[in-house]
Design a protein around this nucleic acid. Sequence first.
DNA 1: CCCTTAATACCGCACGACGGTATGTATTTG
DNA 2: CAAATACATACCGTCGTGCGGTATTAAGGG
Lengths: 217, 217
Amino acid sequence: MARNKHPEETVNLILDVAFQLFMEKGYEHTSIQDIINHLGGLSKGAIYHHFKSKEDIIAAVIDRMTEESNQMLAKVRDRDDLTGKEKLKAIFKESILRPVQEDIFTVAPNFSNSPRLLFCIFRETMDEAAPDYILPIIRQGISDGSIQTDYPEELTELVMLAANIWMNPMIFDDTVEESYRKFMVFRQMMEGFGLDIVDEELLDRLQELAFIYQKNR
Amino acid sequence: MARNKHPEETVNLILDVAFQLFMEKGYEHTSIQDIINHLGGLSKGAIYHHFKSKEDIIAAVIDRMTEESNQMLAKVRDRDDLTGKEKLKAIFKESILRPVQEDIFTVAPNFSNSPRLLFCIFRETMDEAAPDYILPIIRQGISDGSIQTDYPEELTELVMLAANIWMNPMIFDDTVEESYRKFMVFRQMMEGFGLDIVDEELLDRLQELAFIYQKNR
DNA sequence: CCCTTAATACCGCACGACGGTATGTATTTG
DNA sequence: CAAATACATACCGTCGTGCGGTATTAAGGG
């Protein structure tokens, strides 16, 4: 195999293949050899030239998955024309309206048989997304009076756990009705915290998304 | 090594060692050979006589961990002198007062580096404990009027996610204050659902437990 | 523009460790 | 005494990983 003048293409190819296989068979049941076989001529040395371990590959895969989501979160977080509560509402709306999610749905049946992948999403959500993006917004909400709580860190965690993990149809293999019901319960929970951030448009879009997901499984 | 007249002792020994190692080093970083080395003379043949795979061992470990908790849940669930809401309150009180938890705390630093273990707890909570124990109670609460919700399954899942996963100090490496704060947020969430099941005695006990855990890490 | 040199991209093999199995053997049970 | 049980031992295929080697590219001097 000839050497590639643009190594980033090779890296992306490896990540594409790895992502696909991790989703289909799970991280632990995907061997390096599996990845090689789907690489079209590239060898084991190529992989270990670009990545220092199998672990390193999954880290990169997760990074690529969450990158644009995090960019959106940062953009909303850094706006200065919204209150904390309005930012929360904007984020929930964006994350549901974002068309990219459809691509992921079509490729990813579910995370159910991939403990490692679920674990990484879990960590990324709780250790990165929550404190870096949502917490500052909730703190701002406390300052500007749009959010009331004595425990911003914990409220952030619980909300992220519900929204990013529990309501993630890739993790929980939900049907249309289940997704809808979760959203209703989520809404009630948020209202219990004084946060009415769910409107009818969001509910409609959710049902639409769940339907798309339903078709491709 | 001489053959044991009571094979269940051997099984228990294997599970003890496996549990300990899984907690210390994580499931994926504990090899069968690791387990053998801590077995005191027993060999690989012994393990594969009693368990058909490494996977089978972790399943048994999880079973043993959740067994007595599940027995308690079943006992409360099957009482007929309490309303649904009262049963929920009883369960939360029991699960925090139960002294057994102290043993686990002293042995188990955390689940942080064990994706597989976390995954199993996760599945056991959502797929077993939630529908088998908590859901019937919530359904009863709807019948007897002590609980109001249109979505019993989803409410069950969310509550279990918060109580069994998020507030589990073995999974989240919480300090005393963090545990306490989580509990306060949890209380607020439950009240948002019309469920005032947390009282002062529970809060006191929680702080006590968190302190014990804090000492042994 | 060519030649040299260093860095890079990739190959392919070999290694040790791993999970798992097949077979053998001693002990217990009935 | 025979069948079942409780182990031991030797072995297999595969895995993740490291390394020596090679071909391609980029950089710079003349």
